[in-house]
């Protein structure tokens, strides 16, 4: 048997990896990612099976229900390639075994893929790119696009190869502590970054004026007594750097926001985020909350408190 053993060449594995990117293309409510999965397996099926009956059976085998995170699906397809290869070489690998491996791996792996990719890596790279983009710099979108795709393609290829080389033994690795650790590490990093993002990017400004006081002489810039020309500008700037923004006017205006910022900067943003968490947990749709916030913004502007 060793003579005519079929092996999946590097080229075939690359093709599978490329096609695997279209996994979710025919996502449907009946069997979810089954079409994309079968589409990705086609180069391997063509290489392994030659008779029409075998090919048809293999296609049908890979049109069964399947759904997981589109990236962590790569090690699963790697293992499946190894299994199909054994089967084509005469090993007694049943249909149920192949479907069992797919179903057995997709659940736990999706549990890692969602927090790692959607809730840690993408928010971090997205926030990084977006913060640069806000100044109109093309570096922001480029950085996001290039970094994300480099990470993604490397992950897709190397984990598929890993799955292919270890074959079924990967199922044992799954029960080990590694996956749990990755998930936990991603949650820690994600929560840390989200904390930072809430502080930086959720903006609520309360405009009501709490107090207006006349400042003592010397606490503000006396614009009328400045020397003329560039000398005056220089002196004004020097005074400004020592007095701060309050030195610009005779009156010192304290807004509600300034008072809140002295307590904890960003407190209102924090409370709002926690409120959203509560509401989402209670099953309020995110869309409803978003629309309500817009309504609140408009009311706030009309009543002049935001």
């Amino acid at each position: 048997m060793a003579e005519n053993e079929v092996k999946l060449s590097l080229g075939v594995r690359r093709k599978v990896c490329w096609r695997h990117q279209f996994l979710q293309g025919s996502w449907n409510y009946e069997r979810m990612q089954n079409g994309g999965w079968c589409y990705a397996m086609i180069p391997a099926i063509k290489a392994l099976y030659k008779t029409k009956e075998e090919q048809s059976a293999a296609l049908k085998r890979h049109l069964e229900f399947y759904n997981t995170h589109p990236y962590v699906s790569a090690p699963i397809i790697g293992v499946t390639l190894a299994l199909e290869e054994e089967r084509a070489n005469g090993a007694p690998v049943e249909d149920q075994a192949i479907q069992g491996v797919k179903v057995g791996m997709m659940g736990p792996l999706a549990g890692v893929g969602d927090p790692v990719f959607w809730f840690t890596v993408r928010p971090i790279l997205g926030a990084l790119g977006a913060s640069m983009a806000l100044t109109g710099s093309i570096v922001g979108p480029l950085l996001f696009f290039v970094l994300w795709n480099a990470i993604r393609l490397a992950f897709l290829w190397y984990t598929q190869e890993f799955g292919y080389s270890v074959g079924t033994t990967i199922a044992k690795d799954l029960s080990g502590g590694l996956l749990g650790k990755i998930t936990e590490g991603a949650s820690i990093l994600g929560m840390f970054i989200i904390g930072a993002l809430v502080r930086r990017w959720v903006s609520i400004t309360f405009t009501p004026v709490v107090s207006t006081i006349q400042q003592a002489e010397g606490a503000y810039i006396d614009w009328s007594s400045l020397p003329a020309g560039s000398e005056g500008i220089k002196q004004a700037l020097e005074l400004y750097s020592s007095l701060g923004p309050n030195g610009l006017n005779v009156e010192k205006v304290t807004t509600l926001q300034a008072n809140l910022d002295q307590l904890i900067p960003g407190l209102a943003a924090l409370l709002l985020t926690l409120l959203c968490c509560r509401l989402l947990k209670k099953g309020v749709s995110p869309i409803t909350i978003i629309l309500a916030l817009f309504a609140l913004g408009i009311v706030g502007r009309l009543l002049m408190f935001m």
Binding site: P115, W201, V202, A269, L272, C276, L280
Partner: peptide, 18 residues
């Protein structure tokens, strides 16, 4: 003003996941 606040909803979705 509302646009400044809605980012909180997305962050809350992430927080609830993790």
């Amino acid at each position: 003003v509302g646009g400044g606040m809605v980012a909180a909803v997305g962050y809350a979705m992430v927080i609830n996941m993790m």
